[in-house]
Amino acid sequence: GSLMYASIFGNVSAIIQRLYSGTARYHTQMLRVREFIRFHQIPNPLRQRLEEYFQHAWSYTNGIDMNAVLKGFPECLQADICLHLNRSLLQHCKPFRGATKGCLRALAMKFKTTHAPPGDTLVHAGDLLTALYFISRGSIEILRGDVVVAILGKNDIFGEPLNLYARPGKSNGDVRALTYCDLHKIHRDDLLEVLDMYPEFSDHFWSSLEITFNLRDTNMIPGSPGSTELEGGFSRQRKRKLSFRRRTDKDTEQPGEVSALGPGRAGAGPSSRGRPGGPWGESPSSGPSSPESSEDEGPGRSSSPLRLVPFSSPRPPGEPPGGEPLMEDCEKSSDTCNPLSGAFSGVSNIFSFWGDSRGRQYQELPRCPAPTPSLLNIPLSSPGRRPRGDVESRLDALQRQLNRLETRLSADMATVLQLLQRQMTLVPPAYSAVTTPGPGPTSTSPLLPVSPLPTLTLDSLSQVSQFMACEELPPGAPELPQEGPTRRLSLPGQLGALTSQPLHRHGSDPGS
Rank of each mutant, 00 (worst) to 15 (best):
G322R: 03
L409Y: 03
S285H: 07
V416S: 04
L495Y: 06
M424R: 08
S313V: 08
L405E: 01
M220L: 15
E472Y: 07
S341P: 07
R301I: 04
S208N: 15
S139I: 07
T444M: 14
I135D: 01
G281D: 11
S432L: 08
E257G: 10
H184K: 11
L308T: 15
R238H: 11
S500Q: 08
E200I: 01
D182H: 14
P316M: 07
N377S: 14
P299V: 05
S313P: 15
R385A: 08
R307V: 10
A411I: 08
K250E: 10
Q466K: 11
G440H: 15
S286L: 01
L495M: 07
F205Y: 03
D189E: 12
T212A: 10
E319P: 06
R315N: 10
H187I: 04
S283D: 15
D249F: 04
I350Q: 08
D127M: 01
V450C: 06
G233E: 11
E319K: 01
M327F: 04
G159S: 02
P299A: 08
P492D: 11
L178F: 05
G262T: 10
M413V: 14
A177S: 10
P379A: 10
S313W: 08
L417K: 15
E210N: 07
L375K: 14
F201H: 11
T435P: 13
L261R: 09
K241C: 10
D182Y: 09
T336E: 11
E295W: 09
E479I: 01
G169Y: 02
F234W: 10
K185A: 13
T407C: 13
V194Q: 01
A414F: 04
P449C: 05
S393A: 13
G269H: 05
S445W: 15
R388S: 15
S445T: 11
P317K: 04
G287R: 11
S227T: 12
L192M: 11
A430E: 12
G153R: 07
E328P: 04
E253N: 08
G298R: 13
K185C: 13
L458C: 06
P449G: 10
L152R: 01
H504F: 09
S508N: 04
S286F: 15
P316A: 07
F234H: 13
R388V: 15
N338V: 10
S207T: 12
S465D: 14
L192R: 08
N172E: 05
V464W: 13
L128S: 11
T252N: 14
R245C: 13
A411Y: 05
S208T: 14
P225E: 11
C368V: 09
I151L: 04
R360A: 08
Q254G: 10
L209E: 02
P492Q: 13
Q237F: 14
S293H: 13
F134H: 01
R422E: 04
S139R: 11
L419H: 11
D182Q: 10
S374L: 09
D174H: 08
S410N: 15
T252R: 11
R505L: 13
A414P: 12
V427M: 01
R386V: 06
T455M: 10
E253M: 06
L461W: 01
Q421S: 08
T179K: 03
L209D: 01
R238V: 11
Q254K: 08
S410F: 13
D127T: 03
F244N: 12
L461V: 08
L326D: 08
E210Q: 11
R404C: 12
P310I: 15
H184D: 03
K332C: 07
N338M: 08
S243F: 07
E328G: 06
S445G: 12
D196L: 09
R247T: 11
D356V: 10
R360I: 12
P452M: 09
N219K: 07
L480W: 04
V464Q: 12
Q423S: 11
E141V: 05
P379K: 10
G138F: 03
E364Q: 09
P452C: 08
K239H: 12
T415C: 10
E297S: 11
Y180F: 07
A430N: 13
